[in-house]
């Protein structure tokens, strides 16, 4: 298997699906002539042409809104929002429209829509450009929310998302684009809504996703030096939330730390912890811990930004506190 970057994996997924299906097109700010602000769609404009690689005005409401309309009319749009922070500008089209159009009209509309976007902090972009609000979108029934943590999953999940008939928020992380991982040469899909054990262990279950998967894997190696073997369950999809691998693991380890980059309150950790209390109460041997972003708007100042973001050391400390 070849080792490629997350950027290459995502780019390959888009390219292959566009080659495979004429009804797939991409639209968004700077996806065309520029080649994508994160260079994910470099070369697409020249290869697929202006018809299928649509540069849009800087107008998020109509980017998602027109993608909703095109999807209802039978195309398969991949609408790119340059960052997830700009998704708030398009919030109505995402949560009032994409999530609800099918149900509210009795199932007669189908929205085979992917909204590709990028979240995450740590790049000194200050408060409005550094958010990880994944849980916000996972709140809404009608949407599916996918957030991969490895190149392998990014490619397989994005291809599944493009082929899916449901509207999907596909959330990438800006600091993961350079991460390398093994990706099969042949065509493959990863199923949406299936959590995956990314590291085996018996002492504690770490539940995480996206960038924090990488941090958790690093933390687990450190913990192993102290004889603590962490099992890591990667959610990969926040909605639907596949708890089965989490609960299976927890029933063995009886201890859980949930790690997310977003803010703690009302977050992914809160949801996963609540589910563990509901479904595995008899297996709890220690308080369930959350590692998350401190609840401040992220500052430009580098030291303070890192202070607010969850770190590998925070994961190690949380695990050591309960084993």
């Amino acid at each position: 298997m070849a080792k490629i970057t997350m950027r290459e994996a995502i780019s390959q997924a888009l390219w292959e699906e566009m080659e495979r299906d004429e009804s797939v097109f991409i639209m968004g700010e700077e996806v065309g002539i520029w080649g994508g602000t994160y260079a994910v769609t470099r070369g697409f404009y020249d290869h697929f042409g202006e018809k299928r690689v649509r540069d849009t005005p800087i107008a998020e409401m109509v980017i998602v809104g027109a993608a909703n309309g095109a999807a209802m009319a039978g195309l398969r749009p991949v609408a790119e929002l340059m960052t997830i922070n700009f998704a708030f500008v398009a919030m109505d089209q995402i949560v009032n429209q994409a999530a609800k159009l099918r149900s509210m009209f009795g199932g007669q509309f189908t929205l085979p829509l992917v909204i590709r976007t990028v979240g995450g902090g740590g790049r000194q972009l200050a408060a409005t450009h550094s958010q990880t609000p994944d849980a916000v979108f996972a709140h809404f029934p009608g949407l599916k929310v996918v957030a991969p943590g490895t190149p392998h999953d990014a490619k397989g999940l994005l291809k599944s998302a493009i082929r899916s008939d449901d509207p999907i928020m596909f959330i990438e992380n800006a600091t993961l684009y350079q991460v390398r991982g093994e990706v099969p040469e042949e065509d493959y899909l990863e199923p949406i809504g299936v959590s995956k054990v990314q590291r085996a262990g018996d002492d504690v279950t770490i539940i995480t996703y996206s960038k924090m998967l990488q941090y958790s894997l690093d933390a687990a190696e450190e913990l192993a030096k102290d004889g603590i073997e962490a099992e890591i369950v990667d959610l990969r999809t926040l909605r639907p939330l596949d708890m089965k691998p989490v609960i299976d693991s927890f029933k063995r380890t009886n201890r859980a730390v949930i790690v997310e980059e977003g803010w703690r309150s009302y977050g992914v950790g809160a949801e996963v912890a609540a589910r563990l209390y509901e479904e595995a109460f008899d297996y709890i041997d220690a308080p369930i811990r959350r590692v998350a972003q401190k609840e401040v708007p992220l500052p430009y100042n580098q030291a303070l930004e890192q202070e607010a973001l969850p770190q590998r050391e925070d994961i190690i400390e949380a695990v050591k506190g309960i084993v």
Partner: peptide, 22 residues
């Protein structure tokens, strides 16, 4: 439809027309 968030369906119209053009 039939859309009740004021203005929300105007982008749909653009997208549907784009699908026809496409």
């Amino acid at each position: 439809g039939g859309h009740a968030i004021v203005g929300s369906h105007l982008p749909f119209a653009a997208g549907m027309a784009f699908a026809d053009q496409y």
